[in-house]
Computed example of a mutant assay.
Amino acid sequence: MTEVLVLYYSRHGGTRSIARLIARGIEASGAVARLRTVPDIASVGETPSAEIPEDPYVSIEDLKACHGLALGSPVRFGNMAAPLKHFIDSTAKEWLAGTLIGKPAMVFTSGSMLHGGQETTLNTMMLPLLHHGMVIVGLPHSEPALHTTKGGGSPYGPSHITGEGRRQPDAEEKNLAISGGKRLAEIAARLKD
Rank of each mutant, 00 (worst) to 15 (best):
I60W: 03
P155N: 14
L21E: 02
L129F: 02
T162K: 09
T37R: 06
G181P: 00
Y8N: 02
G78E: 04
E94I: 07
G138D: 05
I60D: 12
A82R: 08
I136P: 01
Y9I: 02
K192E: 06
V58L: 04
E119K: 08
Q118T: 04
H131L: 10
G180Q: 07
H67D: 15
E172W: 07
P83M: 11
L63Y: 04
H86K: 12
A92H: 07
A31R: 03
H132V: 06
Y57H: 07
L130P: 00
E3G: 04
H132Q: 13
T47D: 12
I18H: 00
H160L: 15
N123S: 13
R11G: 13
N79S: 14
A97F: 01
T15H: 03
E46G: 10
R190V: 15
G25Q: 06
L21G: 01
E54S: 10
V6W: 05
Q118Y: 06
S73L: 12
Y156H: 14
G180T: 09
A145C: 07
E51V: 15
I187L: 15
M126F: 02
L71Y: 02
E173N: 08
S29P: 01
L176C: 06
P104Y: 09
Q118P: 01
E172V: 05
E94C: 09
H160G: 10
A50W: 05
I101K: 14
L71M: 15
G153N: 10
M80S: 08
P74H: 09
D170T: 07
V75C: 06
L100R: 01
T121D: 02
N175L: 14
T37M: 03
I136H: 02
E173L: 12
R76I: 06
D170K: 04
G181I: 05
K182Q: 15
K192G: 08
Y8R: 02
T91C: 11
P155S: 12
P169C: 08
L129M: 13
R20A: 13
P104I: 10
S29F: 03
M80R: 07
E54A: 14
V135W: 00
F87D: 00
E3I: 11
G78L: 12
G30Y: 05
G45N: 13
N79Q: 12
G165R: 14
A185W: 00
G98F: 08
M113T: 14
V135L: 13
L69T: 03
K85C: 07
P48H: 09
S142I: 11
G45F: 09
L7C: 03
I161N: 03
T37E: 03
H132N: 11
H131F: 11
G180M: 11
R76V: 05
A50S: 15
V107Y: 03
P144S: 13
F77E: 05
E143A: 14
A33D: 00
T99H: 02
H115D: 06
P56E: 04
T149N: 06
E27L: 14
S73F: 09
I26Q: 03
E172Y: 08
F108T: 02
M106S: 12
V4D: 02
E119T: 02
F77S: 10
S49L: 10
G72F: 04
K174W: 04
K64I: 13
Y57F: 15
G14R: 04
A65Y: 01
A171Q: 11
A92Y: 06
A189P: 02
W95K: 09
P48Y: 07
R36W: 00
L84W: 01
